[in-house]
């Protein structure tokens, strides 16, 4: 049954979902996968001179942005649909560190995104499990939510809740940990980009966490746990 408070609130505020336009879908998918590909190239050439890394990144971007089946974006999209905005921002930050201007203050500004955000990483892991269970219809209903968890991602209330969570490290800096750096910006920035573009699907869960990122986070947490 629908929670009466929730019904009252959403009855006034909840509108129809807004999906991304066809042009945004096509071009943003290609750009997103091109960025991921460029980051992979940069990682593979991590010990090479910056000039070589830059050339490789440029080549990867061009390859990823080619139209049609000659582009890896075409096949990555076929398999994985689209990366999340958070993935894109993490990759962009990593690319900046790898091949961006080497001025020290710029490099300081873009710290490793995962530094000091361990509770957000753990929250993302839990969220991924919940979304996976929801996809497989193994999450028992009714939850406190009136909808399946994934469907709740179309609601403005879900976006607002994520917005509040995203600002916790800003309002309460100690929540970001000792080495929080600028990584907290990722989530609010992703939410802002999402409301402007609705990419990748119009559902905010797809904008903040994709299954590939979720799998990578497992490896990240595993590495951190082994160091403890």
């Amino acid at each position: 049954m629908m929670n009466p408070w929730f019904a009252a609130v959403t009855g006034h505020w909840d509108g129809l979902p807004v999906l991304p336009g066809m042009a945004i879908t096509a071009y943003a998918n290609a750009l997103a996968w091109a960025l991921v590909l460029a980051w992979l190239f940069a990682c593979m050439a991590a010990r090479a001179p910056v000039s070589l890394r830059r050339a490789l990144v440029l080549a990867a971007l061009v390859w990823g942005l080619l139209p049609g089946a000659v582009s890896p974006s075409y096949w990555l999209g076929l398999t994985f649909r689209a990366p999340s905005l958070i993935t894109c921002l993490i990759v962009l930050a990593a690319l900046w560190r790898s091949v961006g201007p080497q001025a020290r203050w710029l490099q300081r500004a873009i710290k490793r995104p995962a530094e000091g955000l361990q509770w957000q990483v753990l929250a993302a892991l839990v969220l991924g499990y919940l979304l996976l269970l929801d996809t497989l219809a193994l999450l028992p209903l009714p939850l406190p939510l009136p909808l399946p968890l994934y469907a709740f991602g179309f609601s403005p209330l879900c976006l607002l809740a994520l917005g509040v969570v995203s600002l916790i490290p800003w309002v309460f800096p100690w929540a970001a940990g000792r080495s929080g750096g600028s990584a907290w910006v990722l989530l609010p920035l992703a939410l802002l980009l999402f409301v402007l573009t609705r990419w990748p699907s119009g559902n905010v869960w797809d904008a903040v966490l994709d299954p590939c990122l979720w799998l990578v986070l497992h490896a990240h947490v595993w590495r951190r746990a082994r160091r403890l």
Partner: peptide, 28 residues
């Protein structure tokens, strides 16, 4: 100070909400 940060945060949330709800059609 954190109250000032909170105020900025509220402004951000307001902008986010406005940008999100604005283009939505009324519920059916």
């Amino acid at each position: 100070r954190w109250p000032v940060r909170g105020l900025f945060g509220l402004v951000f949330l307001g902008v986010l909400w406005w940008l999100d709800v604005g283009p939505r059609q009324a519920p059916l």
